[in-house]
Design a protein around this nucleic acid. Structure first.
Length: 650
RNA sequence: GCCGAUGUAGCUCAGGGGUAGAGCGCUUCCUUGGUAAGGAAGAGGUCGUGGGUUCAAUUCCCAUCGUUGGCUCCA
């Protein structure tokens, strides 16, 4: 064997015997490094650190600090869990077990045995036991026939099905201890790296994501190289749960649900209604500046409206059932979208090209029969209000309009402190054309328009195929909630289809009839989901302009209640929201309660203030700010709100 | 819709085959206190709902509804 040249990330080159492993290279640098190497990046490919290097290459050693190192670690952990499960539940059949963003899972067929979260601790225990054995993850290349024979013998239909899609010559197995699995790898050197294990939950999952196929038991887990890291991770999870909008919404009395009203139908309590009103007002003003015109449409529409729009054919059966009139035999549907109504408004009169774009905006409440298992707090409901608008424009205006909408969405996100979002361009799934309505040509034009506009605004985007709406491609602004789930908030969608279906027209400069293009857009998406995410982002500590209770007046004793009432009415006249705490409690107690209720300003009133005609200001979380007159406080307060809302230019 | 979990006072939760408990909140009384919990007394629950087993069910079993972790879906 000859010498090979290995180039490290810092550019330095070292010579080794051909066949050296990455682990040995690490060892030659330092023992400590070797103990931390989980995998290696060899000429851009992720390899096992124990795999021999046979030719000159670029080598990067991957540790826990590298995302690819973590992936190998969790992937190996999934195999370790499978080994433990095979030992404890002989005959269990294994489907797939990949690493995920936080940890890993394995989908398992336990046959007739029922499996619950009570079974997890003993699997964890077994995993730790097996980890201590420091069994090496051994890579085995195998011809397809042999691989098929192995799983036929073992009786695992899932692995056999996976093998069908793999080409002979590319098949590898990994073996650690008593467990052997079909796997592309890479894996960590041995199980001893896995020091702490937590199996998080059990869930059902369909084989290959197909609800018509076998349902498997999915076990989620996470592992770390140090016990301390697991502890910190679990603490972070606990912290995140405290921000959950369902918990805060209940505590702050923002919204509630009622079985009698129906699941997925939120009831906005007074304090939550304030939030909605403030946000609605904020958006209304922004839209006035952006030349939108408010319109209003009813909550139901005739069946024909949705037959025309295509919604009926696509979703009629899954929707809330139609409302019928017994005398006339008419049929109405709860509106699942506002666009058909807006199309009819466009058609109320003929339009000249000079009028376009026309922008109809409506806070429209829509109803969609979401699957019961999918309902979730305010983020997934069956009745919700969109900050919807439809822009009817000429084809040559699409890009310009699209850019203006991106500006609006970014202004809204900026003002509300949403910095952590992903802009996702959702395009057609080229393999399933039957899922979509509209011509290929229109789809291609719309997809190009979105990509060009996003590029011009310098948005960092990710492209997802198959995520488009059935009527057109879209640009979605995605954010994460407290427990890490991704939700769509703002959305901008180009639609060449509805104008066609509703036969929308305008008269061009050539005096001929032309078809306008529609852009659907909703910067919040829905008020419900937006508020849910806002609650989680702020943990209930809303900016002053949004806080349901902006101040609490706290008299030192009952003697000052009358003076407190005067202050209260002076502030209410100024449209400042708050309440008077006139309980016979000590000031410490009143302050504590107001702090817990997340009231931004506490106005403390005692003998000194009553005599001087002032109020003492305390800011939540910060403490005493000194005394001011009511007039001074009002000016101070309004200056803060103005600052928060910014210059309001769009 | 599917798999798993769960449902006890307004809230957070404990309990468990012999018809229920804590803390907070609430009510009343005492206290009138200067920047994160003053004291005492009291009210409040057919233990989600419907069946079944049992002498006896809130507790065990079944069904159903809600909530919930995932999966599928998502105009």
């Amino acid at each position: 064997m000859g010498q090979i040249q290995i180039t490290l990330p810092d550019g330095s080159q070292r010579a080794y015997e051909a066949g050296v492993t990455s682990l040995e290279v690490a060892q030659s640098i330092s023992e400590g490094l070797m103990r931390n190497v989980l995998a290696a990046k060899v000429d851009g490919e992720i390899w096992d650190a124990t795999r021999p290097l046979k030719a000159d290459c670029q080598l990067q050693l991957l540790t826990w600090n590298d995302a690819n190192g973590q992936m190998a670690f969790w992937h190996s952990s999934a195999h370790l869990m499978a080994e433990a499960i095979e030992a404890l539940y002989p005959g269990a059949k294994f489907a797939i077990g990949p690493p995920i963003e936080n940890g890993f899972y394995y989908d398992i067929d336990f046959g007739d045995r029922s499996f619950s979260s009570d079974d997890l601790p003993k699997i964890e225990k077994k995993m730790k036991e097996l980890a201590k054995q420091k069994n090496a993850y051994e890579r085995i290349e195998m011809p397809k026939s042999e691989a098929v024979a192995y799983f036929e013998e073992k009786g695992d239909p899932y692995k056999l099905e996976l093998l069908e899609d793999l080409a002979d010559g590319s098949i590898t197995f990994y073996k650690q201890g008593a467990f052997t699995d079909l796997c592309r790898g890479p894996h960590i050197p041995h199980t001893g790296f896995i020091k702490s294990v937590k199996l998080l939950n059990v869930a059902g999952a369909y084989w290959r994501g197909d609800e018509n196929r076998q349902q498997l038991t999915r076990i989620y887990g996470i592992t770390f190289p140090k016990e301390k890291e697991l502890k910190e991770y679990l603490e972070r999870l606990e912290e995140a749960k405290k921000r959950d909008h369902r918990k805060i919404g209940k505590e702050m009395e923002l919204f509630t649900f009622s079985e009698k009203v129906g699941k997925g139908l939120p009831l906005w309590l007074p304090k939550g209604a304030v939030l909605r009103e403030r946000l609605t007002e904020f958006m209304r003003k922004a839209q006035v500046r952006a030349n939108y015109e408010p319109v209003v449409s009813p909550h139901i529409g005739g069946k024909e409206l949705y037959v025309t729009s295509g919604h009926y054919a696509k979703y009629g059966e899954d929707s809330f059932q139609p409302i019928n009139t017994p005398e006339e035999g008419e049929e109405f549907l709860l509106k699942p979208m506002n666009c058909p109504h807006h199309c009819e408004m466009y058609k109320a009169k003929p339009h000249s090209y000079k009028e376009l774009p026309i922008r109809f905006a409506e806070f429209g409440t829509v109803y969609r029969y979401e699957q019961s298992g999918e309902l979730h707090g305010l983020t997934r409901v069956r009745g919700f209000t969109q900050d919807d608008a439809h822009i009817f424009c000429r084809p040559d205006q699409v890009k310009e309009e699209f850019i203006a909408v991106i500006d609006l969405v970014m202004y809204v996100f900026e003002t509300l402190g949403f910095h952590d979002y992903t802009a996702q361009i959702s395009l057609r799934d080229p393999k399933k054309p039957e899922k979509y309505i509209g011509t290929d040509e229109n789809w291609e034009r719309a997809e190009a328009a979105i990509q060009e506009a996003s590029a011009e605004k310098g948005l960092k985007t990710v492209v997802e195929y198959g995520e488009a709406a059935f009527y057109g491609p879209k640009l979605d602004f995605m954010v994460r909630d407290a427990i890490g789930r991704k939700w769509q908030l703002g959305t901008i969608q180009v639609d060449y289809s509805l104008p066609e279906r509703f036969e929308l027209e305008y008269v061009g400069s050539d005096n001929q009839k032309h078809r306008p293009v529609m852009i659907h857009r909703a910067p919040f998406g829905s008020l419900e989901r937006f508020i849910a995410i806002l609650i989680e982002n702020t943990a209930g500590k809303f900016p002053l302009w949004l806080a349901p209770e902006q101040f609490a007046i706290l008299p030192i004793s009952d003697k000052y209640n009358d003076y407190a009432k005067e202050i209260l009415s002076e502030l209410k006249v100024e449209d400042i929201r708050g309440y008077l705490d006139d309980r016979s409690e000590k000031i410490g107690k009143k302050i504590r309660d107001a702090e817990i209720a997340l009231v931004p300003y506490m106005l403390i009133i005692g003998e000194k203030e009553a005599e001087a005609g002032t109020i003492s200001i305390r800011k939540k979380g910060e403490g005493d700010l000194g005394t001011k007159t009511v007039e001074e406080f009002i000016a101070f307060f309004k200056a803060i709100v103005k600052e928060e809302l910014g210059t309001q230019k769009v």
